[in-house]
Computed example of a mutant assay.
Amino acid sequence: MKNLSLSIPKPCSEKWENFSSTTNGALCGSCNKVVVDFTSMSDEALIDFFSKTKGHTCGRFRPDQLTTYTPSVRVKVNPGVTLLKAGLLSLLLVLTSKQASAQNKKPKSTTEAVEKRGRRAVPESTAIQTEKILKGVVLDEANKPMPGVNVVLKGSTTRIYTDVDGRFELSQKVKEGDVIYLYFIGYTSKEYVVSKEAGSDLVIRMACDIMTLGEVAVDAVYAPDQSGARRLWSKVKNLF
């Protein structure tokens, strides 16, 4: 298996904002070439693009994208073995759930029944909600979702990352005035103060502070084949 190494030996001095927009990037007026915008692509998308593209390509990259990539190896799984594992797992779950259900069935005590009859339940909706769950999406300058962005709640150990769609949900409830920080390599860090209206439809945009333009050099980096024992162990791990 061969790894993929991307680099730009001679960065271009032209400004991206001066280019004319195209469907997959922008047109450089100086050299009349289309510059592909790779800044919002995932690692898998980059590998797929350059594995299918032949010839020279001019691109716009984040600094962290100019690195070496290792293509993932898909292991063929025997359907019969997969069905057998699924059946055994289902049987184990059924037996476990029945045992847990039998242990959790406890008769209600007389005291508990009297207490419930003696007081009226207070609807949860009457309580004053001072804290809330914060959800949202992080977008770049082109309004495209940004996966892998660090989202940190100030004054706590809460740290999460945006998913493939750029979305996040803090596990810890927040209140008005709390501060969250957003970090991503190649982008200006963002500080957001939770407002009274903030909820599940929050949209945060981040601006890129460093961009690299130029003709991409694609090099195949040799990776030695694994030994027979290692290949067997890799296949076993991929079964689970």
Rank of each mutant, 00 (worst) to 15 (best):
T212I: 15
I185K: 15
E176D: 14
V194G: 08
Y192C: 09
K196V: 07
G228C: 02
K173H: 11
L182R: 02
S195F: 06
I180S: 07
Y192G: 03
L202Q: 10
V216T: 05
A220P: 10
V203E: 12
S200E: 07
M206F: 08
E176T: 14
I210A: 04
Y181Q: 03
M211I: 15
T188Y: 02
T188S: 11
A207I: 03
R231E: 12
I204W: 12
V221M: 02
L232H: 04
Y222E: 15
Y192I: 09
V193K: 15
V218C: 00
V221Y: 04
E215M: 05
D219K: 06
C208P: 00
V221H: 00
Y181E: 11
E191L: 04
P224A: 08
R230L: 07
Q226H: 01
C208Q: 06
Y187R: 00
S200I: 01
R231L: 14
A223N: 14
D178R: 08
A198K: 02
W233T: 08
S234P: 00
L202T: 12
G177K: 04
Q172A: 12
S189N: 00
V203D: 03
T188E: 10
Y187T: 00
R231W: 03
E197A: 14
D219E: 14
S189R: 00
I210M: 13
R230Q: 06
E215F: 02
G228H: 07
A220W: 07
G199N: 00
S227D: 11
W233V: 09
K196L: 13
Y222T: 05
V193R: 15
K190D: 11
I210Y: 05
D209R: 01
M211C: 12
S227A: 06
A223R: 08
T212C: 06
P224L: 11
A198H: 12
E176Y: 08
A198T: 12
K196M: 12
I185H: 01
E191Q: 14
V193M: 12
D219M: 03
G199D: 00
A217R: 00
G177C: 05
G214V: 02
K175H: 05
E176A: 14
F184M: 05
Y181R: 01
G186N: 05
K175E: 14
Y222F: 08
T188Q: 14
Y222M: 01
V194P: 07
V194Y: 06
L202F: 13
A220K: 11
D219G: 05
V174T: 04
S200Q: 03
Y181K: 05
S195V: 06
L232G: 01
E197C: 10
L232P: 02
T212A: 10
L213Y: 06
A217P: 09
Y187G: 07
S200H: 01
C208H: 00
A217T: 02
R205F: 05
A207N: 10
Y222N: 09
S234M: 06
A229M: 08
I180H: 09
V203S: 11
R205L: 06
V216I: 15
Y222R: 01
R231S: 14
L213Q: 10
K190P: 02
T188N: 03
G177H: 08
I180Y: 10
Y187E: 01
A220M: 13
D209W: 01
K175P: 06
S234N: 04
D178V: 09
R230T: 05
E176G: 10
G177L: 11
S227N: 13
